[in-house]
């Protein structure tokens, strides 16, 4: 247990090896429980809410948002404990985490685009010849231009 860990000469301050595996098992149980919760939510999503036209879109969106947040939590624990990024010095963490913030724009912009594409298709807005019934409803038209 007490061997001195020799590592590459670039490392000024060797990391003291952790003594126990308690933290690893704690994260394992945490990941398992979060996965089970995700499965229950995902199962309910399709089984009871998709098929039912009464379900509000907000409720479905809420559950999907919860699933995304739970997945991000799992990702955080895998990266910070299993990959030991949490034990690295702050500057190194930042060179990895800051570029990943591009994903915020990346996801928002593309999903917005996909949504707009669907609106255009559904309303025949854009280049297709106008069809009277679709252009009577003003809110739809407004929506399509978004």
């Amino acid at each position: 247990m007490s061997e001195h860990v020799v590592s590459s000469p670039e490392i000024s301050i060797p990391h003291a090896p952790s003594s126990g595996t308690g933290r690893i098992w704690k994260v394992f149980w945490l990941l398992s429980v979060v996965t089970l919760v995700e499965l229950v939510l995902g199962f309910g999503l399709a089984k009871h809410w998709y098929g039912d036209p009464e379900t509000s879109h907000t409720a479905i969106l809420f559950v999907k948002g919860a699933l995304c947040i739970l997945s991000l939590a799992k990702a955080f624990y895998i990266v910070s404990v299993f990959m030991h990024l949490g034990d690295e010095i702050r500057n190194m963490i930042m060179t990895i985490v800051v570029p990943l913030c591009l994903f915020i724009w990346f996801i928002a912009a593309f999903l917005w685009d996909g949504n707009s594409w669907r609106n255009l298709k559904n309303t025949n807005a854009g280049s297709r010849p106008a069809q009277t019934e679709q252009h009577q409803a003003k809110p739809v038209d407004k929506d399509a231009k978004k």
Binding site: S8, P9, E10, I11, S12, I13, E88, I89, N91, M92
Partner: peptide
């Protein structure tokens, strides 16, 4: 001679 990130 040393890693600014204290990692190899």
């Amino acid at each position: 001679g040393r890693s600014p990130f204290n990692a190899s």
